[in-house]
């Protein structure tokens, strides 16, 4: 029995798909904003903070990296009311996704901070800069450059991870799709369309990250005679 694909009923719901996409973008950007802030704070606390701070930070990071996002969502959405904190589905989703991204990005930021030679920090301090100024002017840009690929990769995973928020009925694209699927019975078509939208979003964001990277690290390339350029020569001769 051959199955005939029919996208018409799904595409007829384009307005819902668009608003779902916008909801996903909003949920993602809110979570990314909060999550990266948490991550940076946790990394600084771990690297540069007092001993208790390092313990708190490490415990948070390990707890959230070693349990599924879906369970974190359930715990915050269904479990927190037990402690008298009641969140809407969207609030719980932002909260859980932010904490999840915070834990992952904390490890990424920490790797970046540790990759900056101690001598750079000493040079900044010796010039009279405060610790905060050393972070801001001396450490952040070179560290960001080192971690940029893994950080943007993590942001992509966060964008795609928001689809899980549909499990607690937070408004976003996958929930919109699930509703369309249940009303049209066009499951395969619906989820193919959703996949196409997510794939498009991912590629657009990768392109944006690349542009932002160009701007952030807009230093020109060293002119000539760098060691790296000469080292790669023999390879090219061979191929």
């Amino acid at each position: 029995m051959a199955y005939e694909m029919n996208f018409t009923p799904v595409l007829a719901r384009t307005p819902e798909l668009i608003s779902g996409t916008i909801d996903t973008l909003i949920l993602s950007s809110q979570s990314i904003g909060i999550g990266l802030t948490i991550g940076l704070a946790a990394a600084l606390l771990r690297v540069d903070g007092p001993k208790w701070g390092a313990v708190v930070s490490a415990t948070y990071v390990e707890a959230f990296r070693n349990t599924p996002l879906l369970v974190q969502l359930f715990l915050l959405f269904f479990g927190l009311p037990y402690m008298g904190i009641r969140l809407t589905a969207n609030e719980a989703a932002i909260f859980a996704i932010s904490l999840n991204l915070g834990a992952y990005s904390a490890e990424i930021f920490r790797a970046g901070l540790l990759a900056i030679p101690k001598t750079q920090i000493e040079a900044g301090l010796a010039l009279g800069l405060s610790r905060l100024q050393v972070m801001r002017y001396v450490v952040i840009i070179p560290a960001l450059r080192i971690i940029y690929p893994s950080l943007t990769g993590q942001l992509t995973l966060t964008l795609l991870g928001t689809s899980i928020a549909s499990a607690i009925s937070a408004t976003e694209l996958t929930l919109a799709g699930a509703k369309i699927e249940s009303q049209t019975f066009r499951s395969l078509e619906t989820f193919l369309v959703l996949a196409a939208i997510y794939i498009t979003m991912t590629f657009v964001f990768r392109f944006l990250y690349w542009l932002v990277g160009l701007w952030l690290f807009r230093r020109r390339v060293p002119k000539t005679g760098s060691a790296a350029a000469t080292l790669t020569l023999p390879r090219e001769v061979e191929s």
Binding site: T119, E122, G124
Partner: peptide
Amino acid sequence: KEVGMVFQSYNLFPH
């Protein structure tokens, strides 16, 4: 602020 220091490994900020 009153004391300048120069290091063995220069430690210029590469960026």
